[in-house]
Amino acid sequence: MPARVSLFVTCIVDQLFPKVGLAVVDVLERLGFQVDFPEQQTCCGQPAFNSGYREEARQVARHFLDVFHDADYIVVPSGSCTSMIAHHFEDIFDKEPENLERARRLESKVYEFSRFLLEVAGVDDVGARLDEVVTYHDSCHALRELKVKDGPRRLLGKVRGLELREMDAAEECCGFGGTFSVKFAEVSGGMARTKIDSIVRTGASAVVSVDSSCLMQIQGAISRVGLPIRTLHLAEVLASR
């Protein structure tokens, strides 16, 4: 009996980047996992939490707890949403002991995608092939809140045909920041352009990350200036054959 994995695909992947979700399913099934997609899922509540609307965030987070309460493993193709569930649910349920207990039970079950592959599936070579020079963008929440740093690089290192070229400011924010990207659009855009300069200097033709929101920001800014660089979620790279 293969282990059962519940996919929390995230609202942004569900609505805007469904191919990323399919790639996650593809990689997990190849490794022998039985993937379940609880269809009642929506969002983790982070947009409201980061915007100062704690009560609204709590309502959405309660819904998340209801949907995923019996999951064995929850795999999330996003460092940011994983961190919301694993770290910030504790902050928003500090006055609801029952939900706090439920949130804590989920903490040990929720995994950012690359972490799940390395720590639970125990693989770094998923048999992928991609003939391309890529660079890796450390998304802030994966890097600083989940300490995801070497894992994605290890996985990329095993992809046949792929060359990973580090950029000089891999750890610097792309400027997305959720509602920050529209509340302080000019600053956010400036940060994206600084990031792109760093990407261009590597000569890579693709940027890889574990968060689709960062990639939306980077790709949006790349597309605006018309550079021949594409963005790929790590799952898309690992699903390539």
Binding site: V9, D14, Q15, P18, G21, G189, S223, R224
Partner: peptide, 15 residues
């Protein structure tokens, strides 16, 4: 004002 926006995919992941 700063970036392009992804156009909507034909179908969502859940579809």
């Amino acid at each position: 004002s700063q970036r392009d926006l992804p156009s909507a995919p034909a179908k969502s992941f859940r579809q």
